[in-house]
Amino acid sequence: MTRTAIGTAAGGRTRPAAGGGTRRWGRALRLLALQLVVPVVLLAGIWWWTGQAGSFYFPPASEVARYFADLWLFERVGGDVLPSLGRMFAGYAIAVVVGMVLGTALGLSRLLRTAADPVVQFLRALPPPALIPFALLLFGAGDWSKVFIIALGTVWPILLNTIDGVRGVESQLLDAARSFQIPAGARLTRIVLPAATPRIFAGMRTSLSIAIILMVVSEMVASDNGIGYFVLESQRSFAIPEMWTGIVLLGVLGFVLNWLFVVMEARVLFWHRGLKGNSDA
């Protein structure tokens, strides 16, 4: 009990860095191997277990892979994947624009912010799927009810983070701009909004994962195409391997979209990262 988990962590940090180039390479390789051990073992385990278990719910992974190639490369892409993604991006784009515009207005005006506070608090606490029946009444079962739900569900994190970002702008950044007679419009677009982007992106990232969830749910409740519809229909007709391919596809989509977002964020906010790195040092 003398060697604690915390102890090893601290020990790892103080261990002297490897001297020579070969040793450094060796270290990097070891690290990579370490990170890949668990995923590889896990995948192999799943492959082996599903292959010999003969479970109805967990068909062999090889079979799922075969079905996946059949279905999604690229037969159903046009019929299910594209409609799903299209609706998601439409709703998300609306949420980004509306959230940023309203958030900026509320962030700048204390009066508006206070007056809107109870309504915003209520609407953002309302679980968006509860509004799906409402959206169905409003827009019918077509694309727009789904776009509406996705926009309505994802707008709140963007809105609230924009408000915080706009309010949190360093007053001196604005004083400097005022002292150089930068007009109010340019102060907003060139100073306030750029300074708020780190917060706005944090909100957009939360919203992205909500958008994927709502895309799937809205297709599960009422739709005749889309990945969510496909997965639920497969389950209802006990087409288990097909259902699994849909689940895997949604997982991959979630991962890829998140990754794309992180890459874009790193590009747009490179200065923020640099700034933070500097103040840490």
Partner: peptide, 26 residues
């Protein structure tokens, strides 16, 4: 534990973005 974190990182990063509603049918 740094080691435990490194061992599990890839799996965690892969599982986290999976939309939970995708698991509803299963």
């Amino acid at each position: 534990s740094r080691t435990a974190y490194r061992l599990s990182r890839v799996v965690i990063e892969f599982c986290r973005p999976v939309p939970p509603v995708a698991l509803i049918p299963l």
